[in-house]
Design a protein around this nucleic acid. Structure first.
Ligand code: MN
Ligand code: MN
Ligand code: MN
Ligand code: MN
Lengths: 228, 228
DNA sequence: GTCCAGATTTAGTGTCGGCTAAACCTGTGT
DNA sequence: ACACAGGTTTAGCCGACACTAAATCTGGAC
């Protein structure tokens, strides 16, 4: 109802809900109560209650028993948080010696405490980057964002050369392994072999050869290189 | 009672209470309910309630109707926050273009969100400073702190030369004025004239002459120079 | 068309941390 | 000795946000 919920002065909880719902409802899909609960590690009833309050605030559209979507207002608030989160990650990696498996946790708290001024100062000294350390795009201050098309490495046919552009960050342990074999956004990779039935993939990166499981190949995303 | 309150995982509220009480009870004095309420801009009953909880947690000693003091545990927690606050201020000024009248507000929020790791990284890139931008001493990681002796500029007799070492930061507006006439920690100041009855003080700093009110002279602190 | 498992919501509770109004204590003045 | 003002505490309230247990809906199997 209330169309003018102040995007500033939202609670830490609320901000995290909005970010989660943003992640879970791409392209007009609905995010379900249980998906949200699982992502935020909360009970389903807690989510139900918050969903009710947020839709009364005008940040969500709730279809009972189906799920929720962000309103324009909610989307703006969510993208604001995503921008903060990713810029903070970039800043910590660039200037304070963080590695990409540790930044997420720190950013998860800081994103709620920084002022708009501070975020923009960080962006400025970073040179207004467009991607974070995991290759995720950083929304512009006005909320616009464009997800560049990308394909899982696991779907690249043998023989092709591609560039890693994004890495799933959900498991820090896995992130550490990925870093240890030199894979990160910007690195060129040549797929030299692919075994069938979700079998291992052999790649060449930075002059070295690695054999990775199919599962890993699904969380490494590549730019679909126009091979000329 | 509970002697082992985890200093980590205190609430933002609790951390601010402890910091306030630390400021208000130097050298075994008691901080009164109304002093705390005034400093934190809360009602007296709110403070009464929190004081009860904190003393049950073992962070305070409460003498009803007299006031509170920090326990060793509470003092440790408070100094941890003071260190965070002052290091964050120093970092923001050194690396992110903040001026000393704006940092306090930002630090007031960030101090609750940073990890120990981040604080120490900031300290490291700053070269482990011992004072913040206002000249306030930064407690060591182990909680030790030493307040260097200092005298208000208003008490320096005419003819003496002193060095500004600390500036009261409670009024941003005043802080801006002080900065505008070039006074900041480290600057040398010669007192050329002092009028009686809390009258104006004439000083020379950085080659320029300024006349300041007595009141201002009371919030500018100087190292008592051993004139050799 | 009915039934059931699983998802979702509602009901009821608890803690934290704020508030106002009212009761209470304490030190000071007479 | 005692009243009173001002500070302090208690009583009672509320909103935010979590939880568990119970009720309810819904989509798919049959
Ligand atoms: Mn967060
Ligand atoms: Mn990221
Ligand atoms: Mn604070
Ligand atoms: Mn300071």
């Amino acid at each position: 109802m209330n169309a003018a919920a102040a995007v500033e002065s939202l609670t830490r909880s609320v901000e995290d809900y909005l970010k989660a719902i943003y992640r879970l409802s791409p392209e007009g899909r609905h995010a379900s109560t249980s998906e949200i609960a699982h992502l935020l590690e909360l009970s389903a009833p807690s989510v139900s209650g918050m969903v009710k309050r947020l839709s009364e605030l005008g940040l969500l559209e709730h279809v009972p028993y189906k799920g929720v979507q962000l309103t324009a207002e909610g989307r703006r608030a969510a993208l604001r948080m995503v921008r903060r989160h990713r810029l903070i990650e970039a800043y910590l990696v660039a200037f304070l010696g963080y590695s990409w498996d540790g930044v997420h946790e720190e950013a998860e708290r800081l994103e709620h405490a920084v002022s708009d001024t501070l975020v923009e100062r960080m962006a400025a000294v970073l040179g207004n980057p467009t991607v974070d350390p995991h290759g995720d795009p950083i929304p512009a201050p006005d909320g616009s964002i464009h997800e560049p098309a990308s394909v899982p490495l696991a779907e690249i046919p043998a023989g092709r050369t591609v560039e890693i552009c994004r890495v799933d960050q959900s498991q820090p342990e896995r992130l550490r392994y990925i870093a240890s074999i030199g894979l990160k956004p910007g690195v060129e990779v040549r797929v030299t072999d692919r075994q069938p039935f979700r079998g291992p993939i052999t790649i060449e990166a930075e002059g070295r050869t690695h054999v990775i499981g199919h599962e890993l190949g699904q969380v490494l995303f590549c730019a679909p290189r126009d091979d000329r």
